[in-house]
């Protein structure tokens, strides 16, 4: 057993967890504590509304083009790729319904969240990391301003509210992309297409999708801020923070998605 990566076994009755697992558990605990603080600090009277608006604009508006293009391509590609399989079973008329359900329930929320994890999560991690290593966060603290309130609460609230909005917009654009995809193979009017979509797509498909998007947004904001706040080792550390913010928030997005699928199944929201 390597003493570098694993804690040594002191004796037969006192086994220790490997150091890497200890570090993972410690980081998970730190992240949970850091995230829980958001709810303690979230008070309308102390909210930095101007900064929240600024962050919402940056996170929502500036991510919209990327999310919109990706949503359009997703709708188009999924439809084109699904068509041969559906045609093999003579079920071409089911294409709008099947594609819309898979897009709205799973593909669009998860892909949008992953794009946001890459763009927003890394941006927040790098920005706050840079502020940390250049003592700007300390400067904020010594000026009597709570940096968690100013920097973290505003960003987490912005991501929590903006990611679901991006998902809704991306849903609409993806469904339009799917409409074009359907029309590349068949001649279907827009009204017939929407009719077919809403025959199958119900509130029980939309609700879990939107609900989990709030959690995706919260996780992306919280992980990005956490990674920024714990940045060390100068500019090299900023790069590490940005990178690990993407990796960890991507992992958390999939974890939430798995949990959401299980909960939907348990509560029969299928």
């Amino acid at each position: 057993m390597s003493t570098n990566s694993f804690a040594s076994v002191q004796n037969e009755n006192n086994l220790k967890l490997p150091v890497t697992i200890q570090a993972f558990i410690a980081e998970a605990g730190d992240l949970a504590y850091f995230s829980a603080r958001f709810f303690r600090e979230l008070r309308p009277s102390q909210m930095e509304w101007a900064e929240w608006m600024n962050q919402s604009f940056r996170i929502g508006n500036l991510t919209l083009p990327l999310v919109a293009i990706t949503g359009f391509i997703m709708g188009l590609v999924i439809t084109i790729q699904s068509y041969p399989s559906m045609a093999a079973f003579g079920a071409e008329s089911w294409l709008p319904s099947v594609v819309s359900v898979s897009l709205v329930r799973e593909i669009v929320p998860v892909i949008t969240a992953l794009i946001c994890a890459g763009k927003i999560g890394s941006g927040i991690g790098a920005e706050l990391g840079s502020m940390k290593v250049t003592e700007q966060i300390d400067a904020m603290e010594v000026s009597g301003t709570n940096p968690y309130n100013y920097l973290v609460v505003t960003r987490i609230l912005a991501t929590t509210l903006m990611v679901p909005m991006l998902v809704v917009i991306s849903d609409a654009i993806a469904l339009y992309g799917a409409f074009l995809g359907v029309n590349m193979k068949q001649d279907v009017s827009f009204s017939l297409y929407t009719h077919q979509i809403f025959q199958k797509l119900t509130f029980n498909d939309v609700l879990p999708s939107i609900t989990k998007s709030f959690f995706f947004g919260f996780a992306i904001g919280a992980v990005g801020c956490y990674k920024g706040f714990v940045t060390r080792n100068g500019t090299q550390g900023v790069g590490v923070s940005a990178n690990s913010a993407v990796v960890l928030s991507t992992f958390v997005v999939f974890l939430i998605d798995l949990l959401a699928a299980q909960l939907s199944d348990i509560f029969s929201i299928t």
């Binding site: 700007q136 010594v142 000026s143």
Partner: peptide
């Protein structure tokens, strides 16, 4: 308390070695 500390800090100026100006 942290609130009292924030109030106290508003009576203290601090010049950082790195200046720590908010670069944005």
């Amino acid at each position: 308390t942290s609130r009292e500390l924030d109030k106290l800090r508003s009576s203290i100026g601090f010049l950082f070695q790195s200046n720590a100006l908010y670069d944005s």
